[in-house]
């Protein structure tokens, strides 16, 4: 079934995706970069929608755009990175970088042509087809091992982040009795030789 509207939406979203991802890395203002990344995610969620992966498309918007990118924006605004300093060698490396990128694009354009993948369009499902149900069934049965492993990654990430950021209980005004008892006179009292001034 040929649907020109679907094609139209696809090409618009895909073009927008490419343009916005280019802008993510080229825009001078980091806040603008983050906003373009949001646009990127939005366009890719449209592409997923076209593939009838509604759940993933919505999760991409809810989780990435709604939560992760907001957080990102906070961090970028708080850090106040001096981007001009980061880009000092931008022009110097531009020619060789551009050359490599052009070569790569040419190569990839040649290799990743549709005829090299014997791809078929995904089957269309009816309105009663539940995306979430299929996903859940696959996730908790066939992919239960990777699913558990992903949980381990989350634990590792939490532990790593806390062990890097946590510097012991600082704010408490509790008293450390052993260290109070172990204190030496020299730690607390400093005798300063003040040169006495002669009275005229």
């Amino acid at each position: 079934m040929y649907n020109w509207l679907t094609d139209c939406v696809f090409y618009v979203a895909a073009a927008l995706l490419v343009v916005s991802s280019l802008l993510v890395i080229t825009s001078r203002n980091p806040v603008r970069s983050v906003l373009f990344l949001v646009l990127c995610f939005f366009c890719s969620s449209i592409l997923w929608m076209l593939l009838e992966a509604e759940f993933l498309a919505l999760v991409l918007i809810f989780v990435y755009v709604g939560a992760v990118m907001t957080l990102f924006l906070f961090v970028v605004m708080m850090l106040h990175i001096d981007l001009e300093k980061l880009k000092t060698n931008f022009v110097r490396y531009l020619p060789i970088g551009a050359l490599i990128v052009l070569g790569m694009i040419g190569l990839m354009g040649y290799i990743i042509a549709p005829e090299h993948f014997s791809l078929l369009a995904p089957a269309h499902h009816g309105a009663d087809y539940s995306n979430i149900k299929e996903l859940g069934t696959a996730l908790y049965t066939h992919y239960v091992y990777p699913f558990e492993l992903a949980a381990v990654i989350l634990i590792v990430a939490i532990i790593s982040a806390i062990s890097l950021a946590h510097r012991g209980p600082r704010g408490r005004k509790s008293q450390d009795v052993p260290s109070q008892l172990n204190i030496q006179r020299n730690d607390r009292v400093r005798l300063v030789d003040v040169p006495a001034e002669k009275k005229e």
Binding site: I153, A157, S163
Partner: peptide, 13 residues
């Protein structure tokens, strides 16, 4: 891939 990430992630920290 998950194994790779579980083993690399703690190393960075």
């Amino acid at each position: 891939y998950l194994g790779l990430e579980i083993f690399s992630l703690p190393l960075y920290a």
